[in-house]
């Protein structure tokens, strides 16, 4: 964090504005008094610049680092009516990133895999490989998820089958609301779940 920002305009103006209001050093005063005054001015200038810089840093650093402060990135997102899922099937479903802005374009839509174990019982997997986040593809014939990047493979229950992934597929929490399947999503799934 840059506490002392010399290019900071408001602080610089402030200290510059202070100067004319100070009386000119008097000729008759002793060298000690002039020395004191210079020391005071330097200290004051440093202090004012530091305070100004710190104040200016708040919005700058705050805006840039704001995403790190989002402690609750997940929201309940509706996927579909539960009766659209066939027991034994795993299907790709879309949901919209709850943090999306109009600027996101096609990247607004996200995807997950819904595995229906029996009516009303589900597993919802992230499409992101647990190795490095590449999109895994579901193959219903061999009942495997395969990752094209480094060859991670998962079984249909999401457990790791082979390859470099350190664990099974990430799972979303899910719940049923009025016959709708909802998942707790929003954060790009990764090894560290959101706190």
């Amino acid at each position: 964090m840059n506490q002392h920002d010399p290019s900071n305009k408001p602080a610089a103006n402030e200290s510059a504005a202070n100067k004319p209001t100070n009386p000119a050093p008097c000729g008759g005063c002793g060298a000690g008094a002039s020395e004191n005054r210079r020391g005071f001015l330097f200290a004051a200038g440093t202090t004012l610049l530091t305070i100004g810089g710190a104040l200016a840093a708040v919005p700058i650093v705050g805006a840039a680092l704001a995403p790190a402060a989002n402690r609750n990135p997940n929201k309940w997102l509706p996927l579909a009516k539960t009766d659209t899922f066939v027991p034994g099937d795993t299907v790709l479903m879309k949901f919209t990133n709850p943090w999306s802005t109009p600027d996101d374009g096609v990247s607004r839509e996200n995807a997950c895999y819904v595995r229906c174990l029996e009516p009303g019982k589900f597993q919802v997997f992230a499409v992101n490989c647990a190795h490095l986040g590449c999109p895994v593809e579901w193959f219903e014939q061999s009942r495997l998820f395969m990752c094209p990047c480094h060859g991670g493979v998962y079984y249909e229950d999401g457990s790791r089958a082979s390859g470099p992934p350190p664990r099974g597929l990430f799972e979303y929490e899910w719940r049923l609301t009025d016959g709708n399947l909802e998942i707790l999503g929003g954060r790009l799934p990764g090894l560290q779940e959101g706190t």
Binding site: P67, A68, N70, W99, T101, S107, L188, G190, Q192, G194
Partner: peptide, 21 residues
């Protein structure tokens, strides 16, 4: 700090327009 690092890099909890910006 992984979570925070990642959020700062992506500009949010998910890859989005903010990331490109």
């Amino acid at each position: 700090i992984g979570n925070q690092l990642r959020a700062v890099m992506l500009g949010g909890p998910q890859i989005s327009g903010a990331t490109l910006s």
